[in-house]
Amino acid sequence: MRKILPIEKRNAVLSTMAVLLEQERANLKAVNQQDLSNYSGDDLAMEKRLLVDNAKIDGMILSLQQLTSQEDPVGKVRFDFTHENGMKISNKTAAFGTILIIYESRPDVTVEAGGIAFKSGNKILLKGGKESLLSNLKIVSLWHQALKDNDVATEWVEYLNYDRTETQIFLENPTQKVDLIVPRGGEQLIAFTKKHASCPVIVSGRGNNFVYVNKEANLEKAVAIIINGKTSNISVCNALDKVLIDTNIPNWEIFAKQLVTELQLFNVTVLGDEAVAKATGVKAISSDLIWYEEFLDHKIVIGATNSDQEAIDKINKYCGGHSASIITENNEIAQEFMDNVDTAAVYQNASTRFTDGGQFGLGGELAISTDKLHQRGPIGLQHLVTNKWYIYGEGQIR
């Protein structure tokens, strides 16, 4: 087992990495352009996630600076107890050991997720997609430079340049000890990882997020929130895919038509259930199975619902367990909705686009977990730890 690095060393590496990213900004963008030109362009969302521009680099640097300023998550006392026989017992947070991050397209994950895992005292194994290989190798070379500049072994950050077959072999029979795997990507990647992994996996699941417009909604707020959720960034897991409209809204059909018109101004393809299609003239959905889909595209489905309970039931049946929002001025109705919808993040009168470690004050995230163990929602620095029991005795026997 590797000896954990002192927090001063971990912070120094992160600070150096932030400086190197600034120094190598132009070179990193140039390398990324090679990845973009090599990409086939079949998937708009994938291509958007692949791009490294000034804003992305700014985000990487900021995440490293925020991580550097945060407290050490390792060694925090979570429970203290003195046994009747005099033994002192405490439970403290501890590093996992080695974390493997498997991801598609997003070179910023190489910095942000890698940084969170490193600050948490772990060795990092990175397995990025072939579409971002050159960008990832460039960033990993900066990691290695930052480690060397602080007299830390480069083995703390390792890139696995494996194809699918090699990755499967490694998952099933790792050539080194792996304590935790975090897949970041689409449902196929997550299913592949879960199927073959021989250690625990944190599922950073699909989005398929819902907004429910309740009968007591401020309809102006509703339109703004829906437009933001759908159009501000289609390529992210916190984007909006489904809208439910309460038919108890006075003249709900007029509101539905207005919403469709606004969405179409942003070139969003709008589909409706039978009631919404009849009220607005949009194309009707061909099957209820579409309610399960995450689109990652300029596409949305709008449905009508007759009650709050029906909305809750529909969301719980079809959503990805990620985020759901209710638009209502009635706080009691909102609380009932938020308590009973089974998603990692629940909102009243706000966009699902805020489900994000940085936006939640965590200073970035390793992933957004749609599992309930061991952490749900954005996994920040303070969540990326396991725990360990420390017992101090003086010869006690049982």
Rank of each mutant, 00 (worst) to 15 (best):
R10A: 15
M17E: 12
L21S: 06
L21V: 06
E22I: 15
R25M: 14
A30H: 05
N32I: 01
Q34Y: 06
Q34V: 14
D35N: 12
L36K: 09
N38Y: 00
S40W: 00
D43E: 04
V52N: 09
D53Y: 13
K56D: 12
L64D: 08
Q66Y: 13
T68Q: 11
Q70S: 10
I99K: 11
I101F: 01
I102R: 00
E104H: 00
S105Q: 00
V111E: 13
V111G: 13
S120Q: 13
S120P: 08
I124T: 14
G128A: 09
E131N: 05
N136Q: 10
L142G: 12
W143T: 03
K148G: 10
K148M: 15
E155W: 06
Y159A: 05
T175C: 08
Q176G: 05
Q176M: 06
V178M: 13
G185A: 00
S204Q: 08
S204T: 00
R206K: 14
V213F: 02
E216V: 06
V223A: 08
A224K: 03
A224E: 03
K230F: 12
D246T: 04
T247I: 11
N248S: 14
L265P: 15
T269N: 09
V270M: 01
T280D: 05
D288I: 07
W291P: 01
E293R: 07
L296Q: 07
N306W: 02
E310F: 03
D313L: 10
I315G: 01
I326C: 11
E332N: 08
I333G: 01
R353N: 05
G364S: 05
S369P: 13
T370M: 08
T370N: 04
V385I: 15
W389R: 11
Y390K: 11
